[in-house]
Design a protein around this nucleic acid. Structure first.
Lengths: 232, 232
DNA sequence: GCAAAAGTGTTGCTATTACACCCATGC
DNA sequence: GCATGGGTGTAATAGCAACACTTTTGC
């Protein structure tokens, strides 16, 4: 240990932007801090990287503590490294976003962390540089979701095309044509008709689909153009 | 300083994949290590993040030391954080790639670092997890260059469309149709005809273009589809 | 004049848009 | 039966792939 001379060791945090979707709006899982510094203010969920912990392990640990979920989809965004970004001590923040099915996560885990789902559009001011992190995370989500089928991570196992459309409309904050959207999604062949229909509807019941996980895996890196350039 | 209790400070390195293009092949600027550990072996250029140094500043410092260039295009890829990735001491590596005009950089700077341009296709085995870093960097370059006009960063100020095509063919290691490529590039309106022609040619002299930097900036985030999905 | 490289043109196809119409459900 | 939301259809257009031909240059 500590054999490289003359170089400083630095505190390394992980900060996580957790996105969820309640059927209408995009939500963020935010923490009302009951600890110093900035007690009482809102922040992202985070934690410190431990000496004997792989980075991926730490990420999964933080997400599990917050949501009670394992195998969450997450993606590293950027490392924030201004010297003075944390007033207490110089701290790097490795920042990533995660997508979860808002109904699958464990409410108790969230409560234990003093975390709440907040509407993305009405989000409060966050501590430190966390506002910038959220802005960047939303940009990355919009970027990735236009090309790759990551949106499904935010939905329950079975979902309808109109639900999927509402999700995309929330992500891009703009309306999409119902008919063209449906055709585009179905043409990817990523969806399997379950034969069931959404019973929670007062009008025509929409078909419930589920993701073809094999195709999802194999086609993940292909470009799908879910959203045209002009919409983004 | 050091006010957060109970958390370990960690050594943070930056490792840089520098891409260049000599007109025929993609090149990597690699360092033949004249220091321990792994002296005599090949590695990426890197350095440590200092206590009072912003992350971006450190990145620019390392790139400047290596190439003698400022304002280099670079992009963060990922932070490598396996506990045992460096045998000497646990070290995080914030990994990024940079694109430079191979003829503009300062040979003396590179020599001072014991760095050489190596053909990407014939690259030697690298130390630690640096092979993985290069693989990932190439993937990211391919991904980004298919959608955004970053390829120009690898070319001199004035260049011809056939040169640009050779660059894209090197990046994707696959041939492109001359006529369709030309049309696609010109349709972006990113190129300005300088009126000059490439004199280093024994046959028909190609038109020298330069980048319209204003359009480059403003359209950078738009999708351009330089390369079709099937080619990637 | 000929070989080699660069510039421009055409055509058929595919994908995307911007629309309209019909069906199922609950009241 | 009617309002609401969901599923399917179509015609015009734009963009793309796969081609051939012509021009410039050095020898």
């Amino acid at each position: 240990m500590n054999k490289y001379p003359h170089s400083t060791r630095i505190l390394v945090a992980l900060d996580c932007i957790v996105f969820g979707f309640d059927g209408e709006d995009l939500k963020l899982l935010l923490v009302k801090r009951n600890f110093e510094p900035e007690q009482g203010k809102w922040s992202l969920m985070g934690g410190f990287l431990e000496q004997n912990e792989d980075l991926e392990v730490a990420t999964n640990r933080i997400l599990y503590d917050l949501t009670g979920l394992k195998d969450i989809y997450f993606e590293e965004i950027k490392t924030f490294g201004k010297v003075d970004r944390d007033p207490v001590e110089r701290t790097l923040s490795i920042c990533f976003f995660a997508l979860i099915n808002i109904h699958a996560h464990n409410q108790d885990s969230a409560k234990a962390q003093n975390a709440y789902w907040i509407d993305l559009k009405n989000r409060p001011n966050l501590i430190f540089d966390h506002n910038k992190m959220v802005d960047l995370a939303l940009q990355e989500l919009q970027y990735k979701a236009a090309l790759h089928p990551i949106g499904f991570e935010l939905l329950p196992e079975k979902f309808t095309i109109p639900q999927l459309q509402k999700l995309y409309e929330a992500i891009y904050d703009s309306p999409l044509d119902r008919r063209n959207f449906s055709r585009k999604i179905l043409s990817t062949n990523l969806l399997i008709d379950t034969g069931e229909k959404n019973q929670n509807s007062t009008t025509k019941k929409a078909i419930l689909y589920q993701l073809d996980k094999e195709k999802y895996q194999s086609q993940f890196k292909a470009f799908h153009y879910f959203i045209s350039d002009s919409m983004r």
